[in-house]
Amino acid sequence: MTTDLTSGDAAALALHVDAFGRMVMALPGAAPVVNVVPVRCFPFTSPTQRVSLCDPQGHEVACITDLADLDPGVRSLLEQELSRREFVPTIRRILDISQGSEPTAWHVETDRGEVRFVLTSEDHVRRLGLNGVLISDAEGVRYRVLDTRALDPQGKKLLKRYL
């Protein structure tokens, strides 16, 4: 069925983006597949391993076991395409969280600029690994804190009540 692309196969994988912005996948000895969508199987626990290429219907066409096996050019294109589809801003500073009962209004500074969002329930703050945190706002946008220890003291204090 689907192909797991381990070291040798992965190195032979060719990818390019066509004029319509669709990604085209080619493997030696097979017809190119147009409009494949890369998906990380484990975006948080192991982002660079197990990246799946799916067709628009969601069927898996191939699965790259490790991005390190890819040709560097292909890899950077793939990472670019992946990052385009993934939108999880990283919170650098927590400027304010409204006091009182839920929903709470958050004002944060992310790697993509300052933003305000609403958190409907503290259930939407979830630990990622040892020190990471993933926050889903009322609209379903997720924000990450890579390492809570790296936050400034005020940010740590504000976040503490949710962990």
Binding site: C41, F42, P43
Partner: peptide, 11 residues
């Protein structure tokens, strides 16, 4: 395949 369609895959 349906797991891949979820926003965070297996995570």
């Amino acid at each position: 395949e349906f797991i891949l369609q979820l926003p965070d895959g297996y995570d």
